[in-house]
């Protein structure tokens, strides 16, 4: 049975996602994520020794598209929805550190 999600876990995940949460939100999400984890923990009660791990609920493999170009979407239309655009590009706040 996995351990409960702590408030610190939630604060950490929020920081990775660059989300600023209020104290009340931290409490709410700690409870919600714990419930989700607990639900997933129910599986631990089952004997699944003979069940292979699965990465997808559908028994499908090899879904492809051909290497055929489709027209690009309109840049002006896309950039019009961005908070700020400049020189045909999205303008974003400076990001500290290097891209991972």
């Amino acid at each position: 049975m996995p351990g409960r999600i702590t408030r610190d876990d939630v604060a950490y995940v929020a920081r990775l996602a660059r989300l600023r949460l209020t104290d009340a939100e931290l409490d709410t999400f700690t409870q919600q994520l714990s419930d989700v984890l607990e639900h997933a923990g129910d599986i631990s009660a089952l004997d699944i020794a003979d069940v292979p791990p699965t990465s997808h609920p559908y028994p499908l493999a090899n879904v492809f598209r051909e290497d055929t170009p489709v027209p690009s979407v309109d840049r002006g239309e896309v950039l019009a929805q961005a908070p700020v655009a400049e020189d045909g590009m999205f303008r974003v706040p400076p990001v500290l550190g290097e891209a991972p």
Partner: peptide
Amino acid sequence: EPNTNIDPVSLGLPGSLPVLNRQA
């Protein structure tokens, strides 16, 4: 030219879904 080869998938727009390129 910047942002002239883009589509909902490469922009990560909600609801867009990736489909794997066979040639890749």
